Amino acid sequence: MILVKAIFANLKPFILSLLFLLHCHEYGSIDHTDPGFSISRGLMLYHGSPFTGKMIQKNPTLDETFITTYRNGLEDGEYTARKGKGQLLEQRFYLAGEKHGIHRTWYENGNNRSYAEFMKGKYINESWSWYENGKPAKLDKYNEKGDILATKVWNRLGIIYMNLSFNPDGSSAGLPGSKICEPIKSKRH
């Protein structure tokens, strides 16, 4: 009897680990068309259990592939969008279903499209967007709580036409925008 208890005591951690692995099975990469996928109460399920693994979605019309990492049914980890030959178009990170970390996007020509930092679903620090020609389009600055501090907006020529600072009460000060028209190119004969 003492021998049986000793064997069971040594096997108990192994059995508990095995049961945990069976309950929280991590799948590899699975195509989103798999009939085992469903959504319930905001969770991605696979055969009725919260999904942990990578879901792959392909858009043949755009020749793009999207890979989303899930943990316990929530987006958790890296999300990417790539063009057919592997060119990275988007890279985002999530933590327990919330945007967290650096999110970046690029135009097909390789130029930056957007850059933002998040903490637990809120913007922090800076958020940028650019025109396809590489010129800045917008800059938003945030504090560590996600409150917006300032905004700058440029036209396609690189001229600032909005520049605001925000006060803690929500009021703003600065140049709220103007009707700057981009010049019309004249035809020279």
Rank of each mutant, 00 (worst) to 15 (best):
51 F>K: 09
113 R>E: 13
162 M>W: 01
38 S>P: 12
58 K>V: 13
87 Q>C: 02
14 F>M: 01
142 Y>C: 02
179 K>W: 08
46 Y>M: 06
189 H>T: 11
36 G>N: 09
169 D>F: 14
145 K>H: 04
11 L>D: 05
90 E>Y: 12
118 F>Y: 15
101 G>Y: 05
60 P>S: 07
162 M>Q: 15
107 Y>N: 08
91 Q>Y: 08
162 M>C: 11
103 H>F: 13
136 P>N: 01
20 F>L: 02
55 M>S: 07
113 R>C: 06
181 C>I: 11
131 Y>A: 03
89 L>R: 07
7 I>L: 13
189 H>F: 04
131 Y>K: 11
128 W>K: 14
37 F>Y: 09
13 P>C: 00
144 E>F: 01
143 N>G: 03
163 N>Y: 08
104 R>Y: 12
163 N>M: 03
157 L>D: 15
182 E>N: 15
167 N>D: 12
143 N>V: 00
3 L>C: 05
117 E>D: 07
155 N>Q: 04
130 W>L: 09
74 L>H: 07
111 N>E: 08
25 H>L: 05
189 H>Y: 09
51 F>Q: 06
42 G>N: 11
30 I>P: 02
135 K>Q: 14
114 S>W: 03
180 I>L: 14
142 Y>V: 04
1 M>Q: 09
96 A>T: 03
27 Y>V: 06
81 A>N: 14
27 Y>A: 11
136 P>R: 02
18 L>M: 10
115 Y>Q: 08
122 K>L: 00
128 W>A: 03
99 K>E: 15
158 G>I: 05
121 G>S: 08
189 H>E: 05
178 S>W: 02
1 M>C: 07
93 F>H: 11
184 I>N: 13
85 K>C: 03
17 S>W: 04
123 Y>C: 00
128 W>T: 00
133 N>L: 02
45 L>Y: 08
93 F>I: 00
55 M>V: 14
12 K>N: 12
31 D>H: 14
41 R>V: 02
79 Y>K: 07
9 A>G: 15
13 P>R: 04
112 N>K: 14
155 N>K: 08
47 H>R: 15
40 S>W: 08
1 M>S: 10
41 R>I: 01
99 K>S: 11
69 T>V: 09
167 N>W: 08
53 G>P: 11
174 G>V: 14
36 G>K: 10
120 K>T: 06
65 T>M: 04
126 E>F: 13
143 N>Y: 04
25 H>M: 00
151 T>D: 03
133 N>R: 10
90 E>L: 09
65 T>L: 06
151 T>R: 15
154 W>H: 13
58 K>R: 15
47 H>A: 02
143 N>I: 00
113 R>P: 02
79 Y>H: 10
68 T>Y: 12
124 I>L: 04
82 R>L: 02
134 G>D: 06
39 I>M: 13
144 E>D: 12
73 G>H: 01
3 L>R: 14
154 W>S: 11
45 L>R: 06
50 P>D: 07
144 E>C: 00
32 H>P: 00
122 K>Q: 13
160 I>Q: 13
31 D>E: 15
66 F>I: 09
